[in-house]
Design a protein around this nucleic acid. Structure first.
Lengths: 344, 344
DNA sequence: CTGAAAGCGCTAACAG
DNA sequence: CTGTTAGCGCTTTCAG
């Protein structure tokens, strides 16, 4: 009843079976022109009965649309794998709602990979993650003529569509939260050094927001990049306590070390939130799953993926009013890892 | 110089520019028939100069090959995200070496998703992860006519191509390692209960191997499914010590709890490996990155991905001698978390 | 509301 | 070694 590679049911088969022309079958499928109820039913019945599936390649050739999106995922050090995965799944799921599929590309393929899938019409549009402040792919994406959405904001986003959590506001929100609780000295435990070196936008922005808010509130602040392993976390904790005895508030923007860092603080004799208030910028699932849940600003990977696809769909449909910048406002969830400083 | 959606350079343009026929360009590209050196050079120069990229859809239509593989990734609870991601990246990277791309599907799409991409000729072949012992997709995959490779072994793999780590042997290897060190009582801390309930092949096989080897060596053994969170890990550690005071060897097959479990044992006053020997079945990166590195049998995601693609390529090329079963032998790396029982 | 027919860009016989 | 040509299966004018 259904065919494999060789025995494909084609649109002419369906047409014959339903007693209509191929174009009518096509239009019944696409809805691009009105079909009488009676005809539509017969066509649909034939399609079901014969197990017809339009040939993707033929369709792409004739319609100039592949109904495939490219998703470029980063691989490099310092990016939290579950975030990437959740984002990817969200992109796939949302794309399916718009009848699109997703082609997976790795950052490694570089600009050549983007050109390849775009120029060969393998994909209709692209989603690019892990954008640097000065990303070498910007020029390419601008010239591509196929729509794209970037996750993250480069320094010069003009002419491109970007979506991201407002990481600067997220940094600020954490600090303001601590400020309201009366804390006077805060530290940011950030991403691994290499992330800053390669000028990853979101890491940099957190630092900006963190510092700005601390300054604004007259707080003492410091920033500490941290490698993504437990030993580094422990070392960072020790160093923090040694160098800044007055410290009462910490913001962690580094998924990999959040848990070991909290454990280290406790093993060093600090109670949380009694002696030290801790906030994080990380996925809610992570913050909530710890032995000691952490108050955090969510990195909403799933929502970002959904937004990215929706924006692309609007661009593909020629909608003219697609915003260049979409900054999701940070939302802080209190999980009890922060307390008023007066408590001391 | 290079075209966007509308201004595509096509094979006839290249042909004219190089002063040859379209078929010659096609053959120069595919190598499917001999081309004189001179002609080939002219064609290649024209391709470069015009920035020609073959239209993927047209190619798929004419050649009956899309050069795209489908990869179905699992989403469900109890699967370790980094393993999936590393596997996916390995599949993409390897596929590129064979000039193929990878379409990402989620398990959620189910059998319908498989049929869709296979029957529409969107993909040439499929890779399916997270196979259950009685996987509902088996029948479909057998009937599909497009080649597929499964990661994992169902109970009835006849007619299908499967690749996996030999999890049974992995379980055995861990136990044998402990037996050789003189341990007499061992416990397996396994995957979350739901993983066993849904009869995930690899989890089951580890239990088999673990138990068989323990019995063979006259050891006392027990199996403990464990939820994938730190609290559960701690609870499991306490329970183990309470219920089995004679316990001196533990095998952990649960990436999510390895680290908290080890920490819990230590906090409960056990030195590793002095009082307790710990081994794990998990990615080498995880075992090696812990504060206290753990002796482990590697789950070789990257190699599995590579193998899967290679097998598919052989099947696509009509190679007849493609093995139905590929079981990678387990390899144990000693990281010092095990010691002779005599030391006690 | 429906049909007929002209391609979409490429590959693979077939012919030389 | 190279050219000519007939499709691949679908969409979309153009006609009615």
């Amino acid at each position: 009843m259904r065919g494999g590679a060789g025995l494909m049911v084609k649109i002419t088969d369906v047409a014959r079976h339903a007693g209509v022309s191929p174009s009518t079958v096509s239009y019944a499928l696409s809805g691009k022109r009105p079909i009488s109820d009676d005809t539509r039913q017969r066509v649909e019945a034939s399609i079901r009965e014969l197990g017809y599936r339009p040939h993707a390649g033929a369709r792409a050739l004739a319609s100039n649309r592949s109904n495939v999106l490219a998703l470029v995922v980063p691989l490099r050090a310092g990016i939290h794998v579950p975030v990437v995965m959740q984002f990817a799944v969200s992109v796939v799921t949302t794309a399916r709602q718009y009848d699109h599929d997703v082609l997976l590309l790795t950052q490694e393929e570089g600009e050549e990979g983007l050109s390849r899938v775009a120029d060969s019409a393998l994909v209709d549009a692209l989603i690019v993650m892990d954008v640097q402040l000065h990303d070498p792919r910007l020029a390419l994406l601008r010239s591509l003529e196929r729509p794209s959405v970037m996750i993250g904001f480069p320094l010069e986003p003009a002419g491109l569509t970007c979506v991201d959590l407002d990481f600067k506001a997220a940094g600020e929100l954490c600090v303001e939260h601590l400020a309201r609780l009366g804390h006077r000295a805060v530290a940011l435990v950030g991403s691994p050094p290499e992330v800053y070196v390669r000028q990853t936008a979101f890491a940099q922005r957190v630092v900006e927001g963190f510092t700005a808010a601390a300054d604004r509130n007259g707080m003492v602040s410091s920033v500490h990049p941290c490698e993504a392993d437990p030993a580094a976390a422990r070392a960072a904790a020790e160093r923090l306590l040694r160098e800044q005895p007055a410290l009462t508030g910490v913001v962690v923007h580094n998924e990999a070390v959040l848990e070991p860092l909290v454990e280290a603080f406790e093993q060093l004799g600090l109670r949380i939130p009694g002696d030290l208030s801790v906030t994080a910028i990380c996925p809610d699932e992570l913050a909530g799953s710890l032995r000691l849940p952490v108050t955090s600003v969510a990195v909403p990977s799933a929502e970002l993926g959904e937004r990215a696809v929706q924006l692309l769909m609007r661009k593909l449909n020629g909608s003219d009013s697609v915003p260049e910048a979409t900054l999701l406002p940070p939302r802080l969830t209190d999980r009890g890892s922060t307390a008023p400083r007066d408590a001391l």
